[in-house]
Design a protein around this nucleic acid. Structure first.
Lengths: 213, 213
DNA sequence: AGATTCCGATACGGATCAGTTCCGTATCGA
DNA sequence: TCGATACGGAACTGATCCGTATCGGAATCT
């Protein structure tokens, strides 16, 4: 049974009880520092051990925190993982709007670069691999991390079609998949960092096409 | 300690002791049927439960086999997984050589179609996700499954360059990543089967390029 | 026949790990 | 100061699961 005072499971979506909530309640408020330390430790553990390799005991130890402190905030391991992934999503890179080529290159480059971080590198694979056992986790991750990034690429492509930079009959979805997929496929089993011009080369190959004229 | 009679660990690479070996030894020979049933059950379990979700006990039960029968062949879980993945690799689709477009389309279509099989769909993700804990498994899978398929795509592309079907300055590696990556990216979180023309659209977009003329 | 090895079944040892509970202590509002 | 809640630490429970051991019986060789 949960020792959580009165909160229900659905609240996980909005995060755990924060220190602000507690400030209006009697007793010692929850430590904001502990909370962040736990999330950081969780992400580090995921990067090192994989999603199923994360042990709550280890997370607490890394964070310099008692297990009770962890379970007071997230009643199950899945809740903790959801919170960690949500915290990881980070800022979306904003297209600068100069040209489709420049925007796509910048975004793919950011993708490829973050793929060199093992924490990011294993995100989707982890989710996909062990995702069947954590369906809420997968759904939330796709909604909060994957789709916004895909949509950003799509929007750049659509803008290119409107501005005449791209063929009017461009299949935006296919192009998006080819671009993001190339970055994914490269980082898949290649642990070396992406070469400097990699993103630009991907964009250029797709822009020009590989068919002979 | 292993109860294995006299075989060494390195033999796992070449598979377990087969019924043929045993036929030259006294006593009851090993059942070929049990062996195949175990491998099939392993693959099914991987597809359903994920790589870490596979339980040897469950595999034995599905195969209608005692645990001893399993451990007599593969002394550890990792050995079993390696054997199962090696058995899964299946035949390589052979390019028919008519045209680059036709060959690529056929191969990507086969990829997309097999990605609809959950057993295949989760292969690389599983390996990538929990691969850190099974390094031998990953290495063997890449070598035996991933690379041959990639090389096949590369060879078609190179042939296209030579025949003049593709631009002479085509970046074969990037093109290969864009093609295979698009299929990967589509199937990533999309459980619905690929649309019939999907592979052809990917190939065509890359062949023609999306830049306006 | 007798020795040997395999079979499926089941029980067991031992390790791991999620989640709980309790301890003594620290920090808040009243 | 007092009550309430938080803290880190540690012990504990209960479940899971790998791998071993043992059983009676079946298949095969000499």
């Amino acid at each position: 049974m949960r020792t959580e005072t009165g909160r229900v499971g659905a609240d996980v979506t909005a995060g755990p009880a924060t220190a602000q909530d507690a400030a209006r309640r009697p007793g010692r408020p929850r430590s904001e520092r502990a909370e962040q330390a736990i999330l950081d430790a969780t992400l580090a553990a995921i990067g090192e051990c994989g999603i199923d390799g994360v042990r709550c005991e280890d997370v607490a130890a890394r964070a310099g925190v008692g297990k009770a402190t962890l379970y007071r905030r997230w009643p199950t391991k899945e809740d903790l993982l959801i919170a960690a992934f949500a915290a990881l999503k980070g800022p979306l890179p904003q297209p600068r709007g100069e040209s489709v080529r420049a925007d796509l290159t910048a975004m793919l480059d950011a993708m490829a670069r973050s793929a060199d971080d093992p924490r990011y590198a294993r995100q989707f694979a982890l989710l996909h691999g062990e995702g069947q056992r954590y369906p809420r986790l997968v759904a939330r991750y796709i909604e909060q991390v994957v789709e916004p990034r895909r949509e950003l690429i799509r929007s750049v492509l659509r803008r290119g079609v409107e501005s005449g930079e791209l063929r009017p009959d461009t299949d935006v979805e296919i192009a998006m998949l080819a671009l993001t997929g190339a970055v994914m496929a490269r980082g898949r089993h290649d642990t070396t960092p992406a070469a400097p011009g990699f993103a630009a080369r991907v964009v250029d190959e797709l822009l020009r096409g590989i068919a002979a004229r």
